[in-house]
Design a protein around this nucleic acid. Structure first.
Length: 200
DNA sequence: AGCACGATTAACT
DNA sequence: GTTAATCGTGCTC
């Protein structure tokens, strides 16, 4: 299958249903190049946000300046700012003009750990990248990286294929931080965790 | 032009 | 367990 032919995840991988992409991103290596060195980690938690009808998704408000890349081509980053201080990294899925993406919520640090620690004020390994705003801080990801194409060997953000994961290794849960989002969206089991992963 | 709030985190008690 | 920090965004006036 074409999707399995490359070391890095390509357009066809992201051009599939968001839930499938969110599950299959687990175990893959998120790589961010910064000044010639690689900062990376294994993705262990993701969430799916799917379309204008999903009232937890930013696209609920329709197409705005903020959500332009959410409506763009799959395989590109959608990065937004929240709580006055945090940047969140998503990768766009499905197809152009359909707003959907996977939020990367947690990674296990792999490469460039000393650099990531500097960006995180010396936080210990156990708290280095175990949260959506922690991993963007560790990788020095902000709005400057919004809308970049991850499906390019030269991209500064890309994802390396992981080994196959099985359903028995994946935990499904409800999404975090939804506040007053109404049902049924509040309870959609669209958060995915890799279990039995060796965390630092 | 002004305002309420957020796909969170760290530092508290 | 609770809460302050902090500002871009989208909505209302």
């Amino acid at each position: 299958m074409l999707v399995k032919s490359s070391k890095f995840l390509s357009r066809p991988f992201f051009s599939r249903p968001t839930i499938v992409v969110a599950r299959e991103l687990l175990g893959c290596e998120l790589i961010r190049e910064f000044r010639g060195i690689q900062l990376s980690g294994i993705i262990i938690e993701t969430e799916a946000y799917i379309g204008e009808t999903d009232l937890a998704c930013h696209a609920r408000a329709g197409r705005t300046n903020r959500t332009q890349f959410l409506y763009g081509s799959p395989g590109h980053t959608y990065i937004y700012f929240t709580y006055g201080m945090h940047w969140m990294l998503n990768i766009v899925t499905e197809r152009k003009n359909f707003p959907a993406a996977v939020l990367i919520r947690s990674i296990t640090p792999k490469k460039g750990i000393e650099s990531m620690k500097r960006f995180r004020s010396g936080k210990p390994l156990t708290r280095l990248t175990n949260g959506p705003a922690k991993l963007t801080q560790a990788m020095n990801i902000t709005k400057k990286q919004n809308g970049i194409d991850c499906c390019n060997a030269n991209s500064i953000i890309k994802v390396k294929r992981g080994s196959k994961t099985y359903n028995s290794q994946i935990l499904k849960n409800t999404r975090i931080g939804l506040g007053q989002t109404p049902e049924p969206w509040f309870s959609k089991p669209w958060r995915f965790n890799l279990k039995d992963i060796s965390k630092p």
